[in-house]
Design a protein around this nucleic acid. Structure first.
Lengths: 204, 204
DNA sequence: AGGGTTATTTACCGTTGAGTACAGATATCT
DNA sequence: AGATATCTGTACTCAACGGTAAATAACCCT
């Protein structure tokens, strides 16, 4: 009955590292999307066979969801750290610059797997698509809450519309993911970040 | 040898309308993406059998490319008309407002098929992905050329960076497509459009 | 009316999709 | 050492995939 996933002490030990395999799976999903990724793509990249994949991760869908979880809690993730900057403007600044650096980084697939993992997809991927939409919307809600706080703290004018600011920022970040797929460089994305900040209200 | 596609005068006449079928195919690709769309999805939506599809459109890939062509030349397309507005600011304004209206329009799938048709995809879709990237990049090049002209005509300051302006606008438009997939309304997208315009240089 | 031409229908092709049964391998526990 | 539990590899299932062969149906032209 136990659904825990920690290494059992008895039985033959797993011959691969769960997190390393998950990283590999993430990279494939990121590059090819959920529908575009086959189990053969996954097992090849992860260096394991199908029964091992199913035993360790459940199925393709659960593997994807676990990969997304890992993606969002990575050390190179820029979203949550940026939220903790002292002012709303600095939050936006760090998030945009972080995105510009990260999304065009050639040490991994371009863009953002939460945006492009299942944007348009088959019915088989409906669950995954919903999960990604939820992540994107939650991200904007966190931004919105942060900007509401900034209004109270006085580093955003009381007249500012936190929800629209959050949606504007979210839109640019998601657009940057598409830009990175177009082949845009970090420097080009940084210029977009600067323009975006021109519309952003400063302290007052 | 003739590769023309106009209705021949001899032989059994086609029992379906090419353009109507193409519209249906477009809608499926738009909603499900290239990888997420199967031939059964297509034939069902188009109301024809596979051999008819192959005879009329070649194969899945060519059908997709033809659907995209139709998409861009539709009467409801907002991109090219906006380019012809008298000033750079008005170009941006009309394009952003057009996108806000169009992408959240519930009379067709949300977003933009050029953005979401094959953002991350399998190797089988590589050609299609390239074609879509080209369309997006070409769109930005048209914007860039329009803004260069605006600088010469004096409705953009000589100091303006046409390329960055075009990329900024492209980024927001592409981000709007993702937003529409998130469920954003036209009104919410219009607010994003307004914020985007705040960063846009006016006559001077 | 009949030949030539093209479209439709049905039934199929080989391949790959996701997912699994089962036997053998490798560990711990007693 | 032996029992037990877990993982690995091979070989398989069955359905769906993109694409096509061949027969039949519907039209034009003479």
């Amino acid at each position: 009955m136990s659904a825990v996933n920690c290494t059992p002490s008895v039985g033959r030990p797993r011959a691969f590292d769960i997190d390393t395999a998950l990283e590999k799976a993430l990279e494939v999903f990121w590059r090819k999307g959920y529908d575009g990724t086959s189990l053969s793509d996954l097992t090849e990249a992860m260096g394991i066979n199908k029964p091992s994949l199913y035993a360790a991760f459940g199925n393709k869908e659960q593997l994807f969801l676990k990969a997304i979880e890992m993606y969002e809690s990575r050390p190179c993730s820029f979203f949550l750290p940026a939220l903790e900057k002292p002012t709303a403007y600095q939050v936006a600044e760090h998030m945009l610059h972080g995105a510009a650096m990260n999304m065009a980084d050639t040490s991994h697939p371009q863009g953002c797997v939460v945006v492009q993992g299942a944007l348009s997809c088959s019915e088989a991927a409906a669950t995954v698509k919903e999960a990604l939409i939820n992540r994107r919307v939650e991200g904007e809600q966190k931004l919105c809450a942060r900007f509401e706080r900034a209004k109270q703290e006085g580093d955003l004018p009381a007249s500012a519309d936190a929800e629209t600011l959050a949606r504007y920022l979210g839109t640019v970040l998601q657009g940057m993911a598409v830009q990175a797929n177009n082949g845009a460089s970090s420097e080009q994305l940084r210029q977009v970040a600067e323009m975006t900040l021109l519309a952003f209200p400063r302290a007052g």
